[in-house]
Simulated scan of single mutants.
Amino acid sequence: MAEFGAHLTGAVQNTRPTYFEVIAQEGLMIALRPAMQHTCKILAERNPEGLGWLFRFSDELYTFLDFLLQHHFLTTTAASFSENFYGLKRIVDKESGQNSNSLTLPWKQHILSMFYLVVLPYIKIKMDKLFQVTKEEDVDGFLTSTSDPLTKLKKMFLFVYPIVHMNWEGAVLAYQMAYLFRKSDYHSPFIQLSGVKLSNLTKADMLNLMVKKETEIPNTTSWTSKLLIYCRRFLALSAQGISQGLSVAVFFLQFLEWWYASENEQSRVALTSLPTPLPPSCIKDKSVKFGGDICPICEKPRTNDTALSTSGYVFCYPCIYAYIKKHQRCPVTRYPTLHQHLIKLYPPD
């Protein structure tokens, strides 16, 4: 817990965190989601049929793990995972009656903090992806009809969401600037909406954390109570292991990425010389035509040829676009695939 060493010698309690501390703890959580998605993608590419669901549901998997992690740290340290990592805690206003040295948030602030830490980022990620997909549909002429109510709703979404997103980011920037120039005690609108503000951990807080760990010994004869206590202890140890191993894991992942990148650089060949991967055995039994100008999905002559960079197969653009939107994988090889992997082909007449 070296990050707490600076706070153990301080004489002033509940000091105001610096701007760089609050920005650093937010940047830590922003970096975790792409790392999780990258891990799921690697696992899915290793075993597309068995682990392809990890890539398709990576957002839901991350949100579930984030919920467990944030709930544990808010319950035990009155801080989110990243805030506790940088030696911060959440406190409420004095008029709420909470002890300033307490490491337990009131139930209302706990629920609000969980919503703004876990639920709201998940909603934003899904809205961003929905906006990108809808924008691509509009560019490719899928939203030309004006009589369909769903089409009108999508066009309205394309117009409204950029305004909402701009106001969202503008509000966050305004709060950060106000916090930087000491015009506000809140660095984020979501901190203020949660009814809390950030403060540095004090020496008394660290002692309280140590006492909590020493006194969490099951002294009851009920097996259900013991089971609950041991489950909580297991979750606490898991969360502590994630906290302590985060920096090492990030370095290790970066090292592996550099190592494999250097190996691939030495043995790199042109993509056009690579053979087209064979379909899995579960697809071979089906009467699907892969050769010539036949689309593997509709089994008709292709129109608006579009290739997948993940597998090399060519489809009709409407067919493959709709399939990826629903399944997020190649229909032939089952490789995890997104819309950015579509490559339109323009063969010479």
Rank of each mutant, 00 (worst) to 15 (best):
240 Q>P: 05
179 Y>S: 02
216 E>Q: 14
176 Q>P: 04
207 L>V: 15
224 T>V: 13
179 Y>N: 01
173 L>F: 03
256 L>K: 05
196 V>S: 04
171 A>I: 03
179 Y>V: 03
184 S>A: 06
250 V>W: 10
183 K>C: 05
219 N>S: 15
250 V>M: 07
185 D>L: 06
240 Q>K: 13
197 K>T: 05
253 L>S: 07
247 S>T: 10
176 Q>S: 10
233 R>S: 14
225 S>E: 13
229 I>D: 06
207 L>S: 14
255 F>W: 09
205 D>C: 13
254 Q>M: 05
187 H>A: 12
220 T>H: 10
215 T>M: 14
216 E>M: 14
220 T>A: 14
226 K>L: 06
241 G>Y: 01
242 I>P: 04
261 A>C: 07
200 N>L: 11
214 E>S: 15
176 Q>C: 04
254 Q>D: 02
231 C>W: 07
198 L>V: 03
248 V>R: 08
220 T>Y: 14
191 I>D: 06
172 V>A: 05
181 F>Q: 02
244 Q>M: 11
219 N>T: 15
181 F>S: 03
224 T>H: 11
191 I>P: 01
194 S>W: 08
182 R>M: 02
177 M>E: 04
239 A>R: 02
223 W>A: 03
251 F>R: 07
262 S>C: 06
243 S>K: 15
217 I>L: 07
185 D>F: 10
222 S>C: 07
258 W>C: 04
187 H>V: 04
223 W>C: 05
199 S>E: 05
247 S>K: 06
226 K>R: 13
225 S>Y: 06
232 R>E: 08
190 F>G: 04
227 L>T: 03
259 W>K: 13
239 A>H: 01
204 A>M: 02
232 R>A: 02
175 Y>P: 00
255 F>I: 10
215 T>K: 11
174 A>K: 05
190 F>M: 08
217 I>W: 02
192 Q>K: 14
242 I>W: 11
256 L>V: 05
191 I>W: 00
226 K>T: 09
233 R>I: 04
188 S>Y: 08
219 N>D: 13
255 F>E: 04
253 L>Q: 08
216 E>S: 15
200 N>W: 03
249 A>G: 08
195 G>A: 02
264 N>K: 13
239 A>S: 11
253 L>P: 00
260 Y>S: 11
252 F>A: 13
216 E>P: 01
262 S>Q: 09
205 D>M: 07
